[in-house]
Design a protein around this nucleic acid. Structure first.
Lengths: 156, 156
DNA sequence: TCTTTACACAGAATAAAATTCTGAAATCAT
DNA sequence: ATGATTTCAGAATTTTATTCTGTGTAAAGA
């Protein structure tokens, strides 16, 4: 299913479901101006074609005791495929690393990391990430505050 | 509600709901080993206390025609409160900027930005972000591939 | 132009799920 | 121990999702 096959109603559905994944079908149908049946049909189609990938609950980081979030710029010791693969494989097993992106620019990877506090973050960086053999260096950006964190992508 | 009041069952609920926000209460109750009534009670409590903030549908970026995602390191021309506030206010109105974090380190802000393609990304950077008066410089990291992007936080 | 086909839709019927209610068991503090 | 509080299971009720049927509409072909 290409984007060309998405009409205005589909766009609106995606927008609403991104910001509220638990809206009832009845309410959803009201907001887009269709009856429940075709509304559900459209949503199911978006799910089946993989345009809607999944649904997630978002939890309050601070309230569950995760006070620290950081971005870590990682530079590897080389750029051979085996080195990258080795790094990624290790990363996957670390639950505190919630994002790992291969990027262009002055570093190789950018990680998003969460931890209970600075002390446990330091332990994680020093005893887990910096201990990976292929990691040459890391540079941390601690998040002081977050001004925007929307789950709604602006569909073109 | 502090983290101390969350028992093992709450932890499991949060873990499941983070990875599958649309699970039925019946299924959820099976997975944690309670009957539907107390299961629902617990989930509602987590919602009411704000530990569960919201639910969101995740959509496939590429399938809706958003081929480019980047991180942008932004350095401002100063650090007075008014400068930061001016920047944040402008950022909030740009839908392509889906995250904006105030960070420590060599830059001031880190943005996560999405765009249709490199051309429209360039337009966004040059005509929107770099045009903000208080922005001194930007440095872009284009995401080549994403190896990890979990919505499940490891609750301590 | 007329027909044919294929969709997309609304409304009603059905199935499934959430929610509420009641009372019993377990836990806790006194 | 004892009373109070909390947590739970099972059943009843309400709400919601899902399926079904028929109608209108738009596009494709004769």
């Amino acid at each position: 299913m290409a984007v060309g096959k998405l009409d205005q109603i589909d766009h609106k559905l995606l927008e609403i479901l991104q910001s509220n994944g638990k809206i009832t079908n009845a309410q959803l149908s009201k907001e887009i101006g269709l009856s429940p049946a075709p509304t559900l049909e459209r949503v199911k189609k978006l799910e089946n074609t993989g345009i809607i990938e999944s649904y997630h609950a978002q939890i309050d980081r601070e309230k569950v005791g995760l006070g620290v979030m950081t971005f870590v710029q990682v530079t590897l010791s080389g750029h051979r495929k085996s080195i990258t693969e080795s790094f990624v494989k290790t990363i996957e097993a670390v639950p505190e690393i919630i994002e790992c992106h291969h990027v262009t620019g002055s570093c190789d990877f950018l990680l998003k990391v969460i931890a209970k506090d600075i002390a446990s973050y330091q332990t994680l960086i020093m005893e887990t990430i910096n201990e990976i053999e292929v990691v040459a260096s890391t540079q941390t950006m601690v998040i002081l505050s977050t001004f925007k964190n929307t789950k709604v992508l602006p569909i073109p």
